[in-house]
Write a protein that binds this DNA or RNA. Structure first.
Lengths: 367, 367
DNA sequence: CCCCGCGTTGGCAGCGCTATCATACGCAGG
DNA sequence: CCTGCGTATGATAGCGCTGCCAACGCGGGG
């Protein structure tokens, strides 16, 4: 307790106690309840009164106390962001976009990193939502598909939105791109360059995206009556290190594939590094493509042909869904049908993929 | 209000109201205050009682309500993390480390991204701390040195720790490495390889690290009686894009530098890309070194010689300082002298720097 | 004339917890 | 025996706000 029944000891210049709603009410000549109405933008307040209160609040520098709000009311104005993968910049880009959206809405962001495989995920999630009474939660892969976490959130009746979840898609609102179609298009682009013997590096099977991208690859191959040589499909985990291993194995197969499609850019970048290591020229001797258009895609040389996933837009869409629900004040139940967004991806053609022999012979120059 | 004086309507299977401290007290046969003592690990409770209460709490699945705690007491169990730069993985790595430390301590992390240059930084910071009553705040560059933000935190009496702040270092506890010495060592390494005409790419002058690294560079040069050609010192901003620009200018100077020292790895990676673009072999024709040992350092080809900054350790040390202070319950005043940590860096020698001509001639093989 | 409904405002209990103070008890010293 | 003190526990008053309900004034229909 900050200061209880201040015993009238004259404090000359110490910072005054934070103004409360009561102070604002007195200054504006209204009841506390009316101030509460104004602060919460509730209807049924005359414009004149509303403005008087607003002015009083500004004059005093009034800031609502979130703890009191949360304790007395049914909202905490706190959104939780749960992410799994501590590495990579994906989680961070999502977070920044969420923050951008929360900013104007008066919500604050509480972050937690959960190890998808840990035994106490459910417990940790439960503690989070019941201790802090989060108003809503945003999830990214792979915890988008952690049954325990979802169950806990549902039992606690905390609305949540998933970004790029698995196919159990009726379970909650979600934002995604069509990973399978994107992978299919990407594969078709590679096939269109004349490649026939194409290797594939799979992603972490815990991520739905990994499966969907593989599916798109297979679809494109079979649509073009090309055989998927199972020896040329390697199991990666989305990490650069796993990409190195997979690419080494792939590039030592005989006959060697003429193109490699990796399930994300980190692994594609690793494949390029392996090619360099082996003295293979990219793209003249081997084409390599990735997925995501992560920053690394433009940093490796040659720059990666890849699929751009609009991560900021996806995160913003997810946040907007959640904020819209919370603004509706209907008890946290999603409207029917559940909101769902599928955003557009974009094929980014750069220098890492070309017909065998390259578009033209050239020295060390990049495009 | 969740449910006021439940009018005895029998709710067959709806999830029961969350247990409160009162429930635990009844079950354990003690007063609420004693439960509070146990939950907060206060002394003066008999072991037998303590255990009885703990068991009751576990049996009921009791979770303390943070809003109530914060409202009634003087602690919110919330730590704020303020970062400036939305890009790059630095902020994210720091965040993950902070989270790791908060985990066991019963604190939650509230994140906010502040644009250092925006007009409303002070206002936003003030709103954050007074709305949520943060117990403490951790800052990273460049807001470590934003006078407005620091002033607001100090006025609100919110303890804060800075990671790699500017030299106004008596103002708060801080964690850092000796950037100047590290840059000096790095430069001396390059000089030791035989380079004399050395270019330098500066970082964002808003970051203290940028100035310190430049200082270390100049010190090493003058210690070896080498002239710093001002034409070979370019102003970057720590971003990959700025690195491209600077490197292009540098590599078109006549005579060309034989080595480039960049103030971070992103810009060094960009310099390597420019070298590739121009058909220059790294490190045979041009040596390039970076700073930070960011993930990108091992992803570019050839891998970057750089200085490893122990970011996770720094973030953990900062968090520990803050948590220690909060545990001391002395009103948020730092002990004297203020805690301060200077951690060790490490020179990582990889393939991007070598004597002119390389250690030996080789094909496209990497090391 | 009264009654009802609607828009607007206020009163007040109480959300779940902690700070403060009071109480109870045991034990040492006078 | 009383007093004093330290440890262990309880009673109670809020912290700052919101949900519920009452109160008020006004206009229109019965």
């Amino acid at each position: 307790m900050r200061k209880r029944t201040p015993p009238a000891r004259p404090q000359p210049s110490l910072p005054a106690r934070q103004p409360t709603m009561m102070d604002v009410a007195k200054l504006a000549g209204v009841s506390m309840k009316t101030v509460s109405r104004v602060v919460n933008k509730e209807p049924n307040v005359r414009d004149e009164v509303r403005e008087r209160v607003t002015r009083a609040a500004t004059a005093l520098g009034y800031q609502p106390n979130f703890s009191a709000r949360s304790l007395a009311g049914e909202r905490s104005f706190l959104i939780g962001y749960l992410f799994g993968d501590p590495g990579g910049d994906y989680a961070h880009r999502v977070e920044v976009s969420i923050l951008n959206r929360c900013r104007g809405a008066g919500y604050h962001l509480l972050v937690e990193q959960l190890d998808d495989a840990a035994a106490d995920v459910a417990e940790r999630t439960g503690a989070l939502v019941s201790q802090l009474r989060l108003d809503g939660v945003i999830l990214t892969a792979p915890i988008t598909d952690n049954a325990e976490v979802l169950r806990v959130l549902e039992e606690a009746r905390v609305p949540y939105v998933r970004i790029a979840p698995d196919t159990e898609s009726d379970r909650s609102p979600a934002v995604r791109i069509d990973d399978a179609r994107a992978a299919q298009e990407l594969t078709e682009h590679v096939i269109g360059l004349g490649h026939r013997r194409i290797g594939f590096i799979k992603g972490d099977p815990k991520h739905a995206a990994a499966r969907l991208r593989l599916r798109g690859f297979r679809r494109a191959m079979s649509a073009h009556k090309l055989e998927v040589v199972e020896q040329l499909v390697e199991q990666g985990s989305f990490s650069y290190a796993s990409g190195l291993d997979c690419a080494r194995r792939l590039l030592h197969r005989q006959p060697r594939p003429t193109a490699i499609i990796a399930s994300n850019d980190d692994m594609a970048a690793a494949a390029i590094a392996v090619a360099h290591e082996m003295g293979l020229h990219v793209p003249e001797e081997i084409s390599i493509v990735g997925f995501d258009d992560a920053p690394i895609a433009q940093v490796v040389w040659p720059a990666l042909t890849t699929v751009r996933q609009p991560i900021p837009l996806m995160a913003e869409a997810a946040t907007d869904m959640l904020l819209t629900l919370l603004a509706s004040r209907n008890g946290g139940a999603w409207p029917s049908p559940m909101p769902r967004r599928e955003l557009d991806y974009e094929l980014k053609l750069r220098q890492s993929a070309a017909p065998l022999g390259g578009y033209r012979r050239r020295g060390a120059a990049a495009g």
